[in-house]
Structures are given as C-alpha cells and as structure tokens.
Design a protein around this nucleic acid. Structure first.
Length: 189
DNA sequence: CCCTGATTCGC
DNA sequence: GCGAATCAGG
C-alpha cells in the first residue's frame, strides 16, 4: 500500500482541521505546517477564503479592505512549469523552512557573542561592535566588500568605518545590515 | 530583514 | 477549485 501520494486534496478531515486551527487563531503558515508539507500557507489562505472563513477573531471592527484603486498592471504568472511530480515535490520540500511555533515580534536575533563569558564584565558594548584598530577603515579604504557603517563622530580623528566583510545584499556587514533595516522600515513608506 | 493576510488569475 | 505570485501592511 503505497499508492496514496495524491496531492493534498482538501479532504473533509483536512478542511475540518483547517477550520479549527484557523478559528483558534493560528497563522496560515503554522496551519500549513500542521497540515503537512504538501501545503503552503498560500494554499491555506486560498482555501480559507474560498470557504469564506476570513474574519476569525474580529470582535468589533469592520475593516473594509481598501479597494485596490489601481488594478494590477499585469500578471506575469509563474514560469509555466510542468508539474510533473518532480517540480512540485522538490519545491515543496525545499521550502520546508524552520518550524517556528511562536509568532515573531521579538526578533530573537542572537548575535554571535563571545562564547566564553567569564566573570569579567567590561564596559557596556554601547550598542556597537568593537573593531580592533587594525581593522578600522578610513573613508578611502572602503571597497565593495567592506562594511560602510560609520562609527564615531566624523569630526573627530577616531572616526572610522566598521570594515567587516559586507554582505552581497547590502553595504553593511550582517550586524549592521540587520541594524539598519530594523531601524528604518519601522514606519510606513 | 522577518513576517502576516488579501487578492488576482493561470491552471 | 486550487494555489503561486503578487500586493499591502506590521
């Protein structure tokens, strides 16, 4: 008995579980993870809407979804793929990301701290990384792969740039990149 | 950057 | 009906 692969067809069971979890307030991604890896959060959301289950815990607030005044310009759908098992299965398996049982909000970013935290407590990090003098860079020493996060007062001689290896996705190292993003973006656009 | 749900539309 | 891609927001 092995012929039971069938794509995640929405059986009564699954729909029931979906309804239950959705009503309990679980997020779509969490439900998707609970139902199985053959289901994505998009699938869950799509089904939820089709079942007209939207609003779950909406005490008193009719949020009239702002009507998209500007209709989508075009629809560059996916790249037409032959869902011949391989593609679907592979992508599904590939996207099985970390199972985070908790809703994010606290951003648990564990920065690589010194493994050995002896009883020695030096001065507060001042919310900044300590860069050894030999690694500090001046403006002219910067290049495409050095973190360009400025440290100190530009008007003083001890001003320098982080200089760590920067990420491909930005001008800063991981530490400062993350910091920069969390700093901006906080507000709307 | 992470994430959330909402919507559209090719299949 | 389904769900990926996209959008809009936190």
């Amino acid at each position: 008995m092995v012929s039971e692969a069938q794509t995640a067809g929405w059986t009564e069971e699954r729909v029931e579980l979906l309804k239950k979890l959705w009503m309990e307030g679980l997020s779509a991604s969490q439900i998707a993870g609970e139902l199985g890896q053959g289901v994505t959060r998009n699938a869950v959301i799509g089904k939820v809407h089709r079942l007209k289950l939207s609003a779950r815990a909406k005490p008193t607030n009719t949020t009239p979804r702002a009507r998209p005044a500007a209709p989508r310009p075009a629809a560059p759908r996916r790249v037409t793929g032959t869902s011949s098992g391989l593609g679907g299965a592979a992508s599904a398996a590939a996207k099985v990301r970390h199972t985070m049982p908790r809703p994010q909000t606290i951003g648990a970013t564990a920065l690589a701290a010194a493994p050995e935290m002896e009883a020695e407590l030096y001065v507060a990090p001042a919310a900044e990384l300590y860069i050894p003098e030999e690694k500090r860079l001046s403006l002219l020493q910067l290049n495409e792969h050095t973190c360009k996060w400025p440290i100190g007062d530009p008007l003083t001689p001890d001003f320098y740039f982080c200089g760590q290896h920067s990420l491909e996705s930005g001008p800063y190292c991981e530490f400062h990149s993350r910091r920069a993003y969390h700093q901006l973006d906080r507000k709307k656009r």
